[in-house]
């Protein structure tokens, strides 16, 4: 393996799965790992509880030189506990310069815990990473997304959680080669660690997760009540979009909490984001600021959202939305029919 102190020697990616396949974030992390390694190696990825050649070859095609497979099962055990046990198994034999973790509900807990267990430095919620003079430089939003800090991490390994869409995945290359290593681990002791007694997954009737929607129609405090969301749903249905919400709307109980977009909710990157009655606080923009274009509808002409939006309508959504929905129906009926998967973003 070539050595070059200006590049990391070894990056380990935490391979979170989604419905049995690597999540899009894991593919992005593998791409990021390869770019940081810049010819150095290896890029490895750890997966839990699942193996099979389909999965491991998908990870290798996405950039992994080595796939570690641990036998653990995180269904009943608390997820970060079982991942920590698996990581313990991997880190006993390899010493990567960097551990990359997706900034998910799992990663946001796992990474700091791992850092304290190893005595390593960690940066959470990063949106850009670089390797300079043998160290990781992590850029991350802070102060509710109003500012960015750059942190230098000087431990080996350095640990970072990375936000979705911060980095592009590699083009899948089925001719890439890599090896698969099965590791042993001691499962966490369920008497002394938390155990999961029930898990409820959010199932949206339209089946498209917010994160993958091409159009998102989001509502905030300005809707004035839960009724506003039915108007948003009509608009979303008309243009193949998915409904989301600001933190305030979720906290007020106007919609399911899983609809929340922002710093402590989901990050979405649709090509069109329609923000209705959303003031545009930084912590909300944290979740939608990278949308292709924002159309803001707000009765307050001074709302911060108009500084972020490409198109703005100052006015009462109750008057504008019904008309917009009607006219969209007419507009759509005049358009040639397109493929059925138009609502899913292509990336």
């Amino acid at each position: 393996m070539p050595t070059d102190s200006k590049k990391p020697a070894g990056v380990l990616v935490i391979g979170e799965m989604e419905d049995g396949a690597p999540s899009s974030l894991v593919l992005e992390l593998l791409g990021l790992a390869r770019r940081l390694l810049d010819g150095n190696g290896p890029a490895s990825v750890l997966v839990l509880g699942q193996s099979g050649v389909t999965l491991t070859s998908a990870l290798i095609a996405a950039g992994a030189d080595r796939v570690y497979v641990a036998p653990g099962d995180a269904r009943d055990v608390y997820a970060s506990d079982v991942w920590l046990a698996a990581l313990h198994g991997v880190l006993a034999s390899v010493t990567p310069d960097l551990v990359l973790v997706g900034h998910t509900s799992l990663g946001a807990e796992l990474a700091p815990r791992l850092a304290f267990r190893l005595g390593a430095a960690v940066a959470t919620g990063c949106e850009a990473l670089a390797w300079e003079d043998g160290h990781l430089m992590a850029t991350r939003p802070c102060f509710g997304h109003k500012a960015r800090e750059v942190i230098g991490l000087r431990t080996q390994p350095a640990i970072a959680t990375v936000r979705a869409r911060a980095s592009d995945p590699l083009r899948l290359d089925a001719s890439r080669v890599g090896d698969v290593v099965t590791i042993s681990m001691d499962p966490p002791d369920t008497a002394s660690t938390p155990c999961v007694t029930a898990r409820a997954r959010e199932n949206r009737s339209d089946g498209i997760p917010l994160e993958k929607a091409k159009v998102v129609v989001a509502g905030g405090r300005g809707l004035g009540g839960p009724e506003g969301f039915s108007e948003l749903a009509r608009l979303a249905e008309r243009i193949g979009g998915v409904v989301g919400a600001s933190r305030v709307a979720c906290d007020l109980g106007w919609c399911p909490r899983s609809w929340q977009i922002g710093l402590t909710g989901k990050t979405v990157t649709p090509s069109l984001y329609i923000a209705v009655g959303i003031s545009g606080a930084s912590h909300h923009m944290a979740g939608c600021g990278n949308s292709g274009a924002i159309l803001a509808i707000n009765s307050d002409p001074e709302a911060a959202i108009f500084k972020e939006a490409r198109f703005g309508i100052v006015g009462d959504y109750k008057q504008i939305l019904p008309v917009l929905v009607d006219q969209l129906a007419r507009f759509k009926s005049q358009q040639p029919v397109t493929g059925g998967d138009a609502a899913v973003a292509s990336r």
């Binding site: 608390y78 938390p194 409820a200 909490r257």
Partner: peptide, 8 residues
């Protein structure tokens, strides 16, 4: 993608 109940 939802919620879970955990006993610790």
């Amino acid at each position: 993608d939802g919620t879970e109940t955990v006993e610790a």
